[in-house]
Design a protein around this nucleic acid. Structure first.
Ligand SMILES: [Mn+2]
Ligand SMILES: [Mn+2]
Ligand SMILES: [Zn+2]
Ligand SMILES: [Zn+2]
Lengths: 137, 137
DNA sequence: CACTAAACGCAATTGAGTTGCGTTTATAAT
DNA sequence: ATTATAAACGCAACTCAATTGCGTTTAGTG
């Protein structure tokens, strides 16, 4: 992603532009798959942020609706860039039980939620498909 | 739940009958809502199992398909009794963003999964609705 | 250039869940 | 009933992803 676009995204979210955040966004963008903090740290190598700063940047991105957060069963969060603006999820995710990889199924859209029982207000939904990915099946 | 039924469930799962496990199953059964280890400990008071033993019992129940496990966003697992036998989930869950309560939407059934892209094997799905429960809306 | 709030790095902390290990108990064979 | 054995249990110590505190640096504004 071009620096200009990243500057625009951060500015629109009311966040300061920093080299670390730019690298983080670019990396999430090009990977286009939910990543753990550790994967991000490895991917960014020296040019990147501190572990704590990665979590804090991702938190602010999450608040701003720039990323979404996945918990795929092992109590480790994964983060993916998401242009959709919604704070929730706009597509289902696939989780491979063998290699643990998580994939955004961006081609699929979540159905409009049918009104639930009386009194319930449904604001967002989260859908996971679990099984084996092409590499593992 | 009657003791006889619990004995039968445990035997069928290849697990020993113990007072602690019986109390655990009975409590999950009567609560019929996903509970954390801490909630279970509080609910069972003195008559119950040690924290570690609760986790170990729940693990074996999970393997046997007697319970299912929910991760509702705060990195704390919740467990609910589930007679359906499947190791996965047979219904969606509702998560209240205000009070944190989780509910099994047993009246709703998960749709048959449409065959995904080539190579993917979908074994189970997990569906969460997030919003406000009747008490919080 | 000066100012300020936001962002950052490091070290220490938190807490849900796990592991090791010695003891107890359910279950089935004798 | 007695014994044998594997499963279940309790306690203490541990793991490790994520958080917090705090002093320092930096981006953005004027
Ligand atoms: Mn996604
Ligand atoms: Mn349920
Ligand atoms: Zn895989
Ligand atoms: Zn609520």
């Amino acid at each position: 992603m071009e620096e200009k676009k990243i500057k625009e995204i951060l500015h629109q979210a009311g966040l300061k532009y920093t080299p670390g955040r730019a690298a983080l966004i670019a990396f999430l963008w090009e990977t286009s798959r939910p990543l753990t903090q550790e994967e991000i740290s490895l991917g960014l190598k020296g040019s990147g942020l501190n572990k704590v700063s990665i979590y804090r940047a991702l938190d602010s991105f999450l608040q701003a609706g720039l990323v979404h957060r996945i918990e795929s069963g092992d109590r480790v969060w994964k983060f993916a860039f998401c242009g959709c603006g919604s704070r929730g999820h706009c597509h289902p995710h696939f989780i491979c039980r063998s290699c643990g990889k998580v994939e955004c199924l961006t081609k699929m859209h979540l159905p409009e939620v049918a009104a639930a029982d009386q009194g319930y207000v449904i604001e967002e939904q989260e859908v996971y498909f679990k099984g084996l990915c092409p590499g593992c099946s």
